[in-house]
Structures are given as structure tokens and as C-alpha cells.
């Protein structure tokens, strides 16, 4: 039986617009706009939202719904799959969706090595079948001050780590994206140092909220969202959730991370969502939830403070941003 307790940071069920109603509202707005266009009225710029598309066929059922999911309504599938930061497939938000067909995800394997008892190379087919897949509906907060709610399909990273048995002196987990300019053409230009790399502290990697996602909206991950397997760490800014992973290494020392290497004063190793620590480009106090007009307040640890704040007890989060 699924028992879900409401966290103080969650919105009240009464505050959530039922999906049917907001779809009705969109149809109304599109119809109004069309009417306005035909009568020659110009104005009311910027309130349009992408057309909602039906959810794709459920490719991954049955999987269990996780009590760690938020009950906020998910962002439109179209928005989730057409508004992406994945520089390996282009730097414009729409580029990854346009170039996703270049990212062939078979054959694919993930190497798990470093300070582990049993290093392994796991074929993607095994990743998809040997772990219990769950749906995890998480908030995603980008460092650029926008956010989404995404129904991921995946499994806890801890489940994978348990199989390879980290050694006693392993303290960090390093992740690496595929390096292949043919499949990830953005790597032909040195925008960042390729391949993209990320890292977590071992306790962060073991946290039950941290998952490896292999799908979203019940379907396999589209290329633009980091197919075939990506990390999702919902209390950190989106860039921590590295896409298209080919290597996971346990290390003793803090591994380098791509954006930190590119601009250390802007992007730290931890990159926890924190409305009180400012960023030189964007105020982190508020965010625009994709599909909404008004900005909303950004929550500490992206609303997951109850679950993760203890990991950072005693740390100055302004220093360890």
C-alpha cells in the first residue's frame, strides 16, 4: 500500500490545477488568440504555451510509483522534450530535440570502476532489465532560474553501487558522458571540455532520491533528455544531472566537474538549489516554472530540504555552493 505524507513544502492538493482543466484553458487561449489574429488585434505577447501532446505509450510498465514523487502536475511532455540544455547536441534550447537522432544509443554500456570490489561493464539491456524501475515525479530546477516537473522512470543509484561494492576509502562518485563527436556533434567545438563530467559525494550518491533515469513519461528517454541513461539529483541544479553516461567511477578525491572547470566562480561542486546563494547571472530567489506566467519562489534544496538538509549539516553553503 502506498502511504504518502504531505511535506510542508508541497503545494496543497487544492492548489493544483487538474490536468483536464489546464488543457481546457489552453484550448481556450489558443482559440482566443486565433480569433484575435483573424480580427487583426495585435498584443498580449508572451502568454502562449506549447500545444499539449498526448503522453506516449507506456513502454515501461509495470513499474511502481514511488512515494518519493511529488504530486505536482508534470510539465507538458512537449516542453520537457523540446526545451533542453544538452550542449553536446547544440547550445540552443531547441537544438537537442532537433539533433537527437544523431545520438545512437545501441550498442551502449556503462563502465563502473575505480574504488570498487567488483568493477563491471554493464550493457544497457541489463541496466533496463536487472533493476526495479520506478516512476519518480521530481521537480527539476535549472541554474538558469527555470523549472519543470518531470515523471522520470529509473532506479536508485544506490542499487547499482551496492552491486559493485565500493571500497572503504571511496568517498566520491565521478560520472562521464559519452565522448563521440559523430553521435554528439556539439563536441566538435570546444564550448566545454569534453567529455562532460560530473561528481557526487558518496553519501549524496547513496541518497534514496538520487536515481539513474532510463525513461520519462513512461517511455524510454529521448536523446535530448540524455538517453539511454542519465543521473537525476533533484535537489541540485540541473547541470549536476549528467546525461548519456558511459562511466561511473568511485574515487577518493573530489572529481572535477564540467561547469566548475568552465567557470569556477559561477558553478560549484555541490550546486545545491539554494535561493539564498546568488549566481552572477541569475537571481536564484525565484524561478519560472515552465508553462506558468508568474515566477514562483525557489525552495531550499528545491523543496527536498526535509530529505537532504542533514547531508550538509555544519557546512557553509555560501562557501560550498
Amino acid at each position: 500500500m502506498l502511504i504518502r505524507s504531505r511535506k510542508p513544502t508541497d503545494p496543497l492538493p487544492s492548489a493544483i490545477t487538474p490536468r483536464k482543466h489546464y488543457l481546457d484553458r489552453r484550448r481556450f487561449m489558443v482559440a482566443t488568440a486565433a480569433a484575435a489574429a483573424t480580427t487583426g488585434t495585435v498584443g498580449a505577447v508572451g502568454v502562449a504555451v506549447p500545444k499539449a501532446r498526448a503522453r506516449p505509450a507506456q513502454r515501461f510498465d509495470p513499474f511502481t510509483l514511488s512515494p518519493l514523487s511529488t504530486d505536482e502536475s508534470p510539465t507538458d511532455y512537449d516542453a520537457v522534450t523540446t526545451y533542453n540544455n544538452f550542449y553536446e547536441l547544440g547550445t540552443d534550447k531547441g537544438d537537442p530535440a532537433r539533433n537527437a537522432d544523431k545520438l545512437k544509443t545501441r550498442p551502449w554500456a556503462v563502465v563502473v570502476d575505480g574504488l570498487v570490489q567488483r568493477p563491471a561493464t554493464i550493457a544497457i539491456e541489463d541496466l533496463l532489465t536487472r533493476f526495479d524501475l520506478e516512476e519518480r515525479i521530481y521537480r527539476l530546477r535549472c541554474v538558469e532560474a527555470w523549472s519543470m516537473v518531470i515523471p522520470w522512470v529509473g532506479f536508485p543509484l544506490a542499487a547499482l553501487l551496492d552491486r559493485v561494492e565500493p571500497l572503504g576509502h571511496a568517498r566520491f562518485v565521478a560520472f562521464e558522458t559519452l565522448l563521440d563527436p559523430d553521435r554528439l556533434p556539439g563536441q566538435r567545438r570546444p564550448i566545454l571540455e569534453w567529455p562532460y563530467v560530473e561528481g557526487l559525494r558518496l553519501d549524496e550518491a547513496h541518497h534514496p532520491l538520487t536515481i539513474l533515469a532510463v525513461g520519462l513519461y513512461g517511455d524510454v528517454l529521448p536523446g535530448q533528455n540524455g538517453a539511454p541513461v542519465r543521473l537525476v539529483v533533484p535537489w541540485k541544479y540541473g547541470f549536476k544531472s549528467i546525461k548519456s553516461i558511459v562511466r561511473i567511477s568511485l574515487t577518493e578525491h573530489m572529481p572535477p566537474t564540467s561547469w566548475n572547470r568552465s567557470a569556477p566562480d559561477e558553478y560549484g561542486f555541490y550546486a545545491n538549489v539554494n535561493p539564498t546563494v546568488d549566481h552572477p547571472r541569475w537571481s536564484q530567489r525565484r524561478e519560472r516554472r515552465i508553462g506558468e506566467f508568474f515566477r514562483r519562489d525557489t525552495l531550499m534544496f528545491n523543496g527536498y530540504a526535509d530529505e537532504v538538509a542533514h547531508l550538509y549539516a555544519g557546512m557553509d553553503l555560501a562557501t560550498w555552493y
Partner: peptide
Amino acid sequence: LAWLGWLAMAGGLGANPIEAV
């Protein structure tokens, strides 16, 4: 401007229309 207004009304500005505008 006309093109932008048209896109805004037709829902052609993508997932983050305000940023696009």
C-alpha cells in the same frame, strides 16, 4: 514585431515564451 506577435498567439514560441520574447 508582427512575426513575434503571431508566434506568441499561435503558441509557436516554445516552452519558455517569455524568455523567447
